[in-house]
């Protein structure tokens, strides 16, 4: 049976995003260093993928994977 709205009181009414960020990342040196290492680990494949995508887009048509499609089995005839 509901006799009106339930009022919930909390001692910490609302934490801002920056407070949460501070408490989870910057407060302890272990979490700060850990976050930096984790970001560094993610950054390696991200940079690799991004630069590879840019390079392959920039050199489209000149790469082996593009040239291979235009040969149409000519390579097999060159053997003799």
């Amino acid at each position: 049976m509901s006799k009106g709205r339930k009022i919930v009181l909390t001692l910490t009414p609302h934490q801002s995003f920056y407070t949460t960020l501070y408490n989870t990342v910057f407060k302890r040196n272990s979490t700060f260093v850990g976050t930096i290492f984790f970001a560094g680990f993610l950054f390696q494949p991200a940079l690799d993928s991004a630069l590879t995508a840019w390079f392959e887009n920039h050199n489209k048509g000149k790469l082996w994977k593009d040239v291979k499609l235009t040969l149409n089995g000519a390579a097999e005839e060159d053997d003799e």
């Binding site: 302890r28 272990s30 979490t31 260093v33 290492f37 560094g40 680990f41 390696q44």
Partner: peptide
């Protein structure tokens, strides 16, 4: 708790250099 967090942090540190 702090040693556990340092363990996690050093694991990610190792991950960077063994990538």
């Amino acid at each position: 708790p702090n040693l556990a967090l340092w363990g996690g942090a050093s694991t990610f540190g190792l991950f960077i250099f063994t990538e």
